[in-house]
């Protein structure tokens, strides 16, 4: 019984949202990309989290390697070692990446990135060009590695014994005690822990340790203040409305950059006090070579420099690690500057 609610979707609307790609390559867009273009695009858009060679950075997912590890302890699951279908990589990169700027890559760039990920997994040669036509030539190594849920056959018939007494022979003894006895957010004990609990990344002691280091190495507040005093007026008048707008725009940034009392360096440096700060000076953050060179040259983040950088990061500074497409609207740049000012005094 139809109620006649809703309205017909237009073709353009369906085309805008219906982007999913199937394993057989159906619904792929037109376009193509080669390995070397892919390397360049990857360096700009992906490497900050996934490493220059797709080997992963910090606790972010590794996209290459791990061949023949699936039956080992803590297998390394990458596009090359684990993902069954290439369509999944294309679909995911095109719709959901880069983290914090989803949906900004051109279809050609996506083809190129996927070609590069294949290359970094030793699955294609360096002259490979990925396109709608060559797509189905690629079969990923673990394509046959999956079975449909068989718990009904392997488990459900076995897990039926409701024993009530004398269920175990002998006395019960403790075989494993808890690895992290206290609050898991303090007193971290770097004992190995099982990999990859979460969808995004696995827990490793290394990652945990580096998180703690980052926290220990946060720039002390006084230092920030001193830098601020040198380069900027001690008190800046703020347009609170603009600050609020800037906070919204900052959502584009906060995947990588933190501000506020508890801010730590992440994929990008903390931005407390950035307004008026000398470039490349946040403790504990590894800057790109071009950024260090600019810092050497005396770059200070004032209104003009920040505006230029944020409008088009890669044009402003070739080779920057910041894989952000840029703020197209001047009013967004103005808003974010006001927001950053509010965190710089």
């Amino acid at each position: 019984e139809k109620l006649g609610l809703g309205r017909a979707a237009t073709e353009a609307e369906v085309a805008a949202w219906d982007l999913d790609i199937f394993p057989d390559g159906s619904n792929l867009p037109a376009g193509k990309g080669d390995v070397w273009t892919g390397e360049e695009v990857f360096a700009d858009a992906c490497a900050v989290c996934h490493g220059e060679f797709a080997e992963g950075a910090g606790n972010w997912p590794k996209l290459a390697g791990g061949a023949d590890t699936l039956d080992h302890e803590d297998p390394l699951k990458t596009v090359g070692s684990y993902w069954p279908y290439l369509s999944t990589t294309f679909d995911y990169v095109r719709r959901s990446m880069p983290f914090g700027a989803a949906g900004t890559l051109s279809d050609d760039d996506v083809y190129a990135i996927v070609a590069y990920i294949l290359y970094s997994n030793d699955l294609v040669d360096d002259d490979f060009v990925l396109s709608k036509e060559t797509f189905s030539d690629v079969v990923l190594p673990n394509a046959e590695g999956f079975i449909v849920d068989d718990r009904a056959e392997t488990e459900y018939g076995t897990f039926t014994n409701r024993c009530m007494s004398d269920c175990k022979p002998g006395a019960v003894e403790i075989t494993t005690t808890v690895v992290f006895p206290g609050d898991p957010n303090s007193g971290f004990d770097a004992t190995p822990i099982s990999q990859a609990v979460m969808g995004t990344a696995g827990a490793t002691p290394d990652a945990a340790a580096s998180t703690e280091e980052a926290s220990a190495e946060d720039a002390p507040a006084e230092e920030t203040a001193v830098v601020g005093e040198v380069a900027a007026p001690a008190v800046m008048a703020l347009d609170e409305e603009l600050v609020a707008k800037g906070e919204k725009v900052f959502k584009k940034c906060k995947a990588c950059h933190k501000v506020g009392d508890k801010a730590k360096n992440g994929t990008g440096p903390i931005l407390n006090g950035v307004f008026g700060r000398a470039a490349g000076t946040v403790d504990g953050f590894k800057y790109s070579k071009p950024m260090l060179a600019a810092a050497e040259g005396g770059l200070v983040w004032d209104e003009t420099e920040l505006s230029g950088y944020l409008a088009n990061p890669r044009k402003y500074m070739k080779g920057t690690k910041m894989s952000f497409a840029g703020l197209k609207k001047d009013k967004d740049v103005a808003a974010i500057l006001e927001f950053l000012k509010s965190h710089s005094q």
Partner: peptide, 22 residues
Amino acid sequence: VESREETSKYTDTLEDGTSRKW
């Protein structure tokens, strides 16, 4: 679709390296 969340994640790898999906 065999999207990321139903292939690379949320699949259960068994001891022999085979993984259960769905």
